[in-house]
Amino acid sequence: QIFVKTLMGKTITLEVELSDTIDNVKAKIQDKEGIPPDQQRLIFAGKQLEDGRTLSDYNIQKESTLHLVL
C-alpha cells in the first residue's frame, strides 16, 4: 500500500502494486475520492509523476507517501 496526502491534510491509503502506472493510481484515487484523474497531479520527492510511468520507475516503495495537488 501507499499513502496519498491531500493539501487539505487528509491521507488516503491505496492498495497498489509497484508495477501499477500513475494512471492506475489516479483511477484508484477517483474511486475513493471522486476526483477526476485529469484534475489530479501527483508529486513524489518534489517531482510531478507522469501518467504512463509506473510507481517503480520513480523508486516509490510500499508505505511511501505521495502528495496530491489539484
Rank of each mutant, 00 (worst) to 15 (best):
Q40H: 07
V69Y: 09
P36I: 12
T11Y: 06
R41E: 15
F44T: 06
I35N: 08
I2V: 02
D31T: 05
T65Q: 12
I29C: 07
A27H: 08
A45E: 15
Q39A: 05
E33H: 01
D51S: 05
K28H: 11
E63R: 08
E50D: 04
Q1R: 06
A27L: 03
D57F: 13
D20Q: 06
S19A: 04
R41H: 14
T54R: 07
V25E: 00
L49P: 01
E15A: 10
H67P: 15
N59L: 10
S64K: 05
V4F: 09
D31M: 08
I2R: 00
T13E: 13
Q1G: 03
I22T: 07
S64I: 05
T21V: 07
G34R: 06
K26T: 12
T13S: 09
K62P: 12
Q1F: 12
N24K: 03
A45P: 03
K10F: 07
G52S: 09
G46Y: 02
I2Q: 00
N59V: 11
I35W: 05
N24Y: 06
D38M: 04
D20P: 00
K28T: 11
G52P: 10
D51Q: 02
V69R: 13
L68W: 01
L7W: 15
V25R: 00
P36R: 03
L7I: 14
R41G: 06
R41S: 12
Q39P: 12
Q40G: 11
Q40I: 03
N59E: 13
T11W: 06
L49N: 00
K32G: 13
E33N: 02
K28I: 09
G34P: 02
V25N: 00
E50L: 11
E50K: 15
I22Y: 02
S64W: 06
A45L: 14
I12K: 05
G52E: 11
K62T: 13
T6H: 02
M8F: 04
K32Q: 06
A27M: 02
D38H: 04
Y58L: 13
T11I: 12
G46C: 05
Q48M: 02
T65L: 14
K32M: 10
A27E: 14
A45T: 09
Q39V: 09
S56L: 04
T11A: 11
L7E: 15
V4Q: 00
S19E: 02
F44R: 11
Q39T: 11
D51I: 05
T21C: 03
D57N: 11
E15N: 08
E15W: 02
K26Y: 09
E50F: 06
E15P: 08
L70R: 02
P36G: 02
D31N: 04
V4H: 00
Q61R: 06
S64M: 13
R53P: 12
T11H: 10
N59F: 08
S56G: 04
Q30V: 11
E17M: 06
L49H: 00
T54C: 08
N59H: 14
